[in-house]
Simulated scan of single mutants.
Amino acid sequence: MGRPSKLVLKPLVNLDKFSHLNLYGNLERLPAPNEFPPTIKVLTLSISRLNKDPMETLEQLPCLIVLRLLADSYTGKRMVCHRGGFKKLEVLKLWMLKELEEWDVEDEAMEKLEELDIRCCYKLHNIPPRLMSKQRSL
């Protein structure tokens, strides 16, 4: 129909062998960290249209290695990654987050990050300096 579907998720915590999760469509809210599968390693969000910073929740997922926030997954202006968050994250992709202007990454957050891929986030005016060496594109 040319529009993203509205996604209504029930807690996924019982999916204890789940490692990859791709969510394409509108989400009213992200599940709480304890509602995600505890073994989730790869998470992709697209067209979610979340207006609350998703990092506060996602940084608490203990096994997350790859996070992809794609087109319109987040519609807010600011994201914050807190100290100690994303303990295992190695790959972060931020694509087409059209309203994102600020991204703050506190010390000791994303310490294992190896690859940062930012595309078409034209309003983003600050990339944390310590992550610049991990960046692939703008």
Rank of each mutant, 00 (worst) to 15 (best):
M1H: 13
G2W: 09
P4E: 10
L7W: 09
L7G: 02
L9R: 00
K10G: 00
P11N: 09
P11G: 09
D16C: 00
D16N: 01
F18H: 13
L21V: 00
L23I: 07
G25W: 04
N26P: 00
A32V: 06
P33C: 08
N34M: 01
N34C: 03
E35Y: 04
F36V: 01
P38S: 14
T39P: 01
T39L: 02
K41F: 08
K41E: 15
S46W: 08
I47P: 01
S48L: 02
S48F: 02
R49D: 11
L50E: 11
K52C: 02
K52A: 09
M55P: 03
M55A: 15
M55H: 09
E56W: 03
T57Q: 09
L58T: 05
E59Y: 07
Q60K: 14
L61D: 05
L61I: 06
C63S: 12
L69H: 13
L70F: 14
A71F: 08
A71Q: 11
D72P: 05
G76V: 11
R78D: 15
C81N: 01
G84I: 09
G85L: 05
F86L: 05
V91I: 13
K93D: 10
K93V: 04
W95I: 08
E99V: 01
W103Q: 04
W103D: 06
W103E: 06
V105R: 01
E106Y: 05
D107R: 07
E115F: 07
L116T: 03
R119L: 06
C121T: 06
K123M: 03
I127L: 13
P128E: 14
P128R: 04
P128Q: 08
P129G: 04
P129H: 05
R130S: 11
L131A: 05
S137C: 12
